[in-house]
Design a protein around this nucleic acid. Structure first.
Lengths: 114, 114
DNA sequence: TTCAAATATACCTTTACAGGAATATTCCTC
DNA sequence: GAGGAATATTCCTGTAAAGGTATATTTGAA
């Protein structure tokens, strides 16, 4: 029932790795929405919307507020911060600064010669 | 056969949303490796390693270089840049809980990245 | 206290995919 | 060109998960 503590684990990625759920997240980027609004804007049947929202909530990506008989969903910040931190560890890759391939091949060649 | 053009689509996420593949990516963060080395370091059987590497390659996350009868895999930069760009669109969400100092420092850091 | 709206849940069916094991392919060395 | 090492591929099986449909639950209002 309660959302997981968000660190950059695979459950967060798998939650986002579903087309509809990614759309939901992108939709909520602009602000909180109710289940019905989400379903309508994305052309979903209500049960599927609820199911996807449950998955996202269970993985700590969304949080829910009850408003009368409506449930308002909004994004939590932590998972995105965690994802951002994780991505930072790939900064070297992103910047293409090292071409480690040459070095690697060199090492292999050295080993072969022993 | 050839890798897909990397934009932040769900296929990239689903490729990373598998525990072993995420480990492979994190392993290759430090430099290119051959199939055998990847399998050994992660305790995988060779066929499973090859299969995961194929998925990652098909989604444009890795690229391969043939060296004799070895295949060297390394990370491509584009998918991570795309993921980073996508994440930036959630900056409003991420910064929600930060005071202005943190926001300021973050902006400075982003400038450094150019 | 009954009705309708909004949402969640349960059950079923189908499909995608991961692992296991065997086999095919490629390339070097002798 | 035969053998072995490194890697890819194929086939099989089990399982997780997504959609469809029906139904349960909660809430406000008449």
């Amino acid at each position: 029932m309660s959302g997981k503590i968000p660190d950059m684990d695979v459950t967060m990625l798998s939650a986002l790795a579903e087309p509809t759920r990614k759309k939901i997240v992108e939709l909520l980027r602009d602000g909180p929405l109710s289940v019905g609004e989400i379903a309508e804007r994305l052309g979903l049947r209500q049960p599927q919307a609820s199911k996807h929202l449950k998955v996202l909530s269970d993985n700590g990506i969304l949080e829910m507020t009850a408003e009368a008989n409506r449930r308002i969903y909004k994004l939590r910040s932590e998972p995105f911060q965690a994802m951002n931190d994780w991505l930072k560890s790939f900064r070297g890759v992103m910047e293409d600064r090292f071409d480690k391939l040459d070095q690697y091949l060199r090492d292999m060649q050295d080993q072969d010669q022993r």
